[in-house]
């Protein structure tokens, strides 16, 4: 297949056309921060952490939804982007009620790791402290909206991998919530197959199995990517 030249961080790379900037960066060991990206499901560019500078574009582009062009000049992790990533991370923490010390995902949380990566030591924005529900109606799983960052990975996994479409997003702005069916409790959902894929897709401790204590959560998001790869092989 023909390859096209792209320049990322002043380094010339020959890549396959049709790939996204994020895929190219990951293949070439260029560190990219992401939250809403999950290999195997559609990218939506919601978290704004993978922003890159593209020469000739008058705005920052999200690497996960921008495909490479021939002779594209891309810069990642410039001072401006680092500043923006930090702001985004602070807003993640300020939006809902994230308390690591009591969270099931403590130590295995992607949001926590993101905080370490951008060297977050304090949050400059006022916390919203919204009143969020904890849905324990499902016999096996719990949905804690306090820890949700609205990456919608669970929504996409439920729709694209499981094909159940139990989850979706209601309202808009800071009123948004993940809902199952007609905003009915998860346990009463008629579409949920209880497969547990959303559990593994969730980057934080928002969805977790019952009977798990603080810091004991094990998530395998790569399992979902493998599953999609195997489906494509058509064995």
């Amino acid at each position: 297949m023909n390859t096209i030249p792209v320049i990322i961080n002043d380094k010339k790379l020959d890549v396959d056309p049709g790939k996204t900037i994020l895929e190219v960066c990951r293949e070439n060991d260029i560190e990219m921060l992401t939250m809403c990206h999950l290999k195997g499901v559609m990218d939506i560019g919601a978290c704004r952490l993978c922003l890159v500078e593209v020469e000739g574009a008058n705005k920052l582009m999200s690497a996960c939804t921008t495909r490479v062009n021939a002779n594209m000049i891309v810069r990642t992790a410039t001072d401006k982007i680092k500043r923006y990533q930090r702001i985004t991370t602070e807003l993640f923490f300020a939006e809902r009620n994230h308390v690591c010390s009591v969270c099931v995902a403590n130590g295995k949380c992607e949001l926590q790791q993101l905080g370490y990566k951008v060297e977050l030591d304090h949050i400059r924005y006022p916390h919203l402290f919204p009143q969020c529900e904890v849905d324990t109606s499902h016999p096996w799983y719990v949905m804690d909206h306090n820890r949700c960052i609205m990456c919608t990975r669970c929504v996409r996994v439920c729709t694209e991998v499981e094909g159940a479409h139990n989850w979706d997003v209601m309202n808009r702005g800071h009123q948004v919530r993940i809902i199952s069916d007609f905003n009915t409790p998860w346990g009463e959902s008629i579409t949920c197959t209880s497969c547990g894929k959303c559990l593994h897709a969730c980057p934080t401790g928002a969805i977790w199995p019952k009977a798990i204590v603080q810091g004991q959560l094990e998530k395998k998001p790569e399992m979902l990517s493998e599953l999609m790869e195997k489906r494509k092989m058509k064995l």
């Binding site: 139990n166 979706d168 309202n171 809902i179 199952s180 069916d181 007609f182 579409t191």
Partner: peptide
Amino acid sequence: PPSRVYSTVT
């Protein structure tokens, strides 16, 4: 899916 309709309405 019911959730899709509900999300559109809200």
